[in-house]
Design a binder for these strands. Sequence first.
DNA 1: CTTTATTGTGTCCGCCGGACACAGATTGGA
DNA 2: TCCAATCTGTGTCCGGCGGACACAATAAAG
Lengths: 232, 232
Amino acid sequence: MTELLWSTPQPPSRGPKPAVTLSGIAEASIRIADAEGLDAVSMQRIAAELPVTKMALYRYVPGKAELIAVMSDLAMGTPPEHPGLTWRDALHAWSTDLFQGFSKHPWLLLSTIGRRPIGPNEAAWLDRGLQALAGTALTGGEQFDSILVLSGHVRTLALQTVSMPGGSTGLTEETVTTAFATMIAADPERFPSLAAAMTSLEGSENQGFSFGLDRILDGLEVLIQTRVKRDR
Amino acid sequence: MTELLWSTPQPPSRGPKPAVTLSGIAEASIRIADAEGLDAVSMQRIAAELPVTKMALYRYVPGKAELIAVMSDLAMGTPPEHPGLTWRDALHAWSTDLFQGFSKHPWLLLSTIGRRPIGPNEAAWLDRGLQALAGTALTGGEQFDSILVLSGHVRTLALQTVSMPGGSTGLTEETVTTAFATMIAADPERFPSLAAAMTSLEGSENQGFSFGLDRILDGLEVLIQTRVKRDR
DNA sequence: CTTTATTGTGTCCGCCGGACACAGATTGGA
DNA sequence: TCCAATCTGTGTCCGGCGGACACAATAAAG
């Protein structure tokens, strides 16, 4: 499975010319997922976008899971560069870039869940994140864990904020929250802290992403400063 | 959809006695998901565990999505209590409890993704989290955002750590990471920071959960302390 | 021109969620 | 007591999914 992600397969010498390419298949899949959501990406649907039938796709890809991996890594693209920033500003920019990536392809939030092989583009994102911390006194493990926390936060907020095309039963953000608020208001003494926090919430803006990001960066700064002082 | 989660439906007066109950169905589903993973939970499979056929389930539940919501909220259970702790210790305990909940039912990580109705148990968890912050100088919105960051971290680490039964192609943690390490080692100058961080990683323990948790709590503490000083 | 490797197609299978008609059970009212 | 209303469970059918497999068409190497 990892091979498909990292290798550029050679065109064979014998036999008929392939009608499509692996990257062409992946691009078609991305187009579908962007427009209609990840659930709309089926082998049939992909083949309909290309001059081949469904079964021909299996000449290029061993199965659907591998195809999803390829299209996911391709859609991630390469991370933007931000030279000359402090570690904090660099991580801030990195997180924002990642968030925008998820906004551009919301289905990536669903296709990149759990244990899975990592492709070159995802590795490049990881590298850029670690690059920001390379000058600090953090150990390699701590650098990894820091990036993990940040990426987790970006994913969490993107998942909460970004709307997906074809997202199940068309539940809007507002429908869910108002229904929830109604249930809480129905008996507030069952969820006292929740009810209290919600009443003090009326008409306030949703700042979740930057709030959490600043808290995490603050926390990292505390640790990094401690290390610097100890080194003296 | 919210109704199923919050209401306790009355048994009807006329007609034959129902052979099963909604909670019985949900419990059977949980049993399957625990043992064989979320993908193994199909209407057929659930009915096979109960003295009814597949179609009878639709008398109790409008569709599979709603059933997943019910079983998810049920599996979450009620959060443990930790009276008399500081906000920091309370949030630490809350996060650890949540992590253990995800460890007990790993499929919850998959079934509780994205925009969805919130049930009473999940509301209770949220309430307990907010309760820890109720005594601080944070606004309601900040309290929500803080809990969101924490829960996101717990989810991220659980997703990375916990192994799921029936998890796709049986990829072990080790298989994936060694394959990844091989690709990075193949040309280290393509991912310099990544390669550097990985070499300094050899044989070190995985502390991701507590590391990130401490950083987030540190960051929250910075903000809360600032508020306290300003209030004076 | 034949051999050989490779691609694309059509057919088939099991499984999924779900719509729908229908039979059996139970109870309330006449 | 009997009937009508109401509710439950079953069987059948549908479209769509991922994928196994056999087979024909194609192109290059010998």
